[in-house]
Nucleic acid binder design. Structure first.
Lengths: 332, 332
DNA sequence: TTGAAAGCGGTACCAG
DNA sequence: CTGGTACCGCTTTCAA
């Protein structure tokens, strides 16, 4: 099951087998067929490790995500993967569960794999990690993870804009008691949304509170539960993302609170599910497909031109009005 | 950034550096520290390809899934990954989107990677593929993919039991107009569920019909749409899985049909979402966690004993009653 | 404890 | 067109 084995059986040199396996230039079709026959007979599969080691290049992209369960991350992955396949690249993913230690481990693994490009889409980034990636010379893109630097590209979302719109919109509807539900990750995008929420909400005459739990359906429900058990009764709940918002909806339903009559709920991201839950979520759209395209483009430069300079891309989210928000209930 | 480079700078041989990198037996701690310092200075990351090539072993498990978007598959993956990490293994996943060509490509990729074990959790399996895996000598587990053979383990679900229970239950509630909503994959578990549905439903005096679309929220909605547009008005809709069922719920809601008053809906798998959608789905539980454990155990034998013989595991699903099913509406 | 050297399975350049 | 062969970067005896 090695190149040499095939070569021997086919009565040719390893070089020739290699040429056949790679559809290389000129190989007499008689020889080619002979080799191919042996290849199938032996069920030969070239060793990819040997191949990349010898060849130098990699044809594999690495991608590190905070939470693959959250459709938001998965969508970006899928977008990148689809593009990658059309260009003959593989994508290997790693999940961090928002844990820095795991992120570090994944980063090292990717560097060790000598991936052709690395996309890091996590909220728990750390400057020192960024540095390690930089020094490894691995082409990389970071999604929401600090300033662009060297060969490292960067993509970020204008969270401020998104959150402000939500709050303004709800305030206009007469809401005065707000809550923000987030997940535990204390860094980057997470806190940026929360911070903006707090700042924005303070501009008005409002009461507000925040709660957090794990990112996910169950986390959303738990956060809502602890929020409401504390006795605070918000009329508007702004969630850090759609995924958690769906969990919040469930908890409210269980408590007999109607959405949006009794309380309005908003999400963030506009994942497919936000349209299929009940009631459908008012949210803010983050273009995963577009992010995926951008990520890929920065990692795998067009055949033609050499490679674009490190650049930052900022995305402005769009407001999506659905059924989970409405006027504040009459004050008691 | 190669072993040799480190060796030179540290004034030792590559063998020694290798020993240090692998926490190998005896290395004078002075030398060890010197090497480690150079390693950090140079930001050295061992080349994993060279490592596996030279070492022979792999410490990486491969996993091929039909649709990572469907939480059912993702849950199994997560279970396997969690276990793998505790034992120092990596897991690389590949997605097929239910496409056989993609499955074949992924299979080859995994074999080429010389993974230490391969889990194939797809509905589109083909005997010839199975054969290719077998000949490659890669330890593998198949989830629902034909008879166990050679070093290939096999896990299957007693779909028949699950579907029969759903139909019986609904029939007992007075339903006589059934519909089955599946996805396009024509193979294995898919059709097994559908076939069982048809067989079971025929035992009673019922009208029935089937519809199919892509696996997913949108697919479920589309399938329901085409089903209802055809003029057929089922009082009970049995879905191939929870994921599609959630899409079905959405379509029914849009059409002003109440669940379960006007029509009952059932899912399959018992994914987390089935509990968070509205109304919560009556479904059948498939233990992904357990499947994951089994998969891992079969791929990575305990330290102690050598390796268990090829075996088949059959899982009996459990019925989960929730809010999406109820008595058939009074006949008009 | 440490070094030297033989691979692991391919790729790619240089001759023929 | 095809063969010979020097690596790619690391692991692993075998000796020292």
């Amino acid at each position: 099951m090695s190149l040499e084995e095939v070569a021997r059986r086919a009565g040719v040199s390893t070089a020739t087998v290699s040429r056949v396996m790679n559809n290389k230039t000129v190989v007499k079709s008689a020889t080619r067929n002979r080799v191919l026959r042996v290849v199938t007979e032996l069920n030969y599969h070239p060793n990819l490790h040997a191949r990349t080691l010898a060849g130098g290049r990699s044809r594999t992209l690495g991608m590190i995500l905070s939470n693959m369960e959250n459709p938001f991350f998965l969508d970006i992955y899928r977008a990148v993967e689809a593009l990658a396949h059309t260009r003959g690249y593989e994508v290997v993913v790693a999940n961090t569960d928002y844990r820095r230690e795991q992120l570090l481990a994944s980063l090292r693994m990717m560097i060790g794999r000598r991936v052709a490009g690395l996309a890091v889409v996590v909220s728990e980034m750390d400057p020192s990690f960024l540095n390690e990636v930089n020094e490894s010379k691995t082409p990389a893109v970071f999604y929401d993870a600090g300033a662009a630097c060297q060969s490292v590209h960067n993509i970020r979302i204008n969270y401020r804009l998104g959150i402000e719109r939500m709050v303004d919109y709800l305030h206009d509807l007469g809401h005065h008691k707000f809550a923000f539900i987030g997940h535990h990750s204390a860094l980057g995008p997470m806190s940026e949304r929360e911070v903006t929420f707090v700042e924005t909400v303070k501009r008005f005459d409002t009461e507000w509170r925040t709660a957090a739990d794990e990112d996910g359906l169950e986390g959303g429900r738990q956060a809502a539960r602890s929020l409401l058990q504390s006795g605070f009764q918000p009329t508007a709940i702004i969630c850090v993302n759609d995924f958690m918002a769906v969990g919040v909806l469930r908890e409210l339903r269980d408590r007999g609170l109607r959405v949006p009559q009794d309380v309005s709920v908003t999400g963030f991201d506009n994942i497919k599910l936000s349209e299929f839950c009940y009631p459908a979520l008012t949210t803010v759209h983050i273009p995963r497909e577009r992010i995926g395209r951008h990520v890929f483009a920065m990692l795998v430069p067009e055949e033609a031109k050499p490679k674009p300079p490190a650049q930052e891309m900022i995305i402005d989210p769009e407001f999506v009005l659905r059924a989970s928000t409405g006027p504040a209930p009459a004050r008691e």
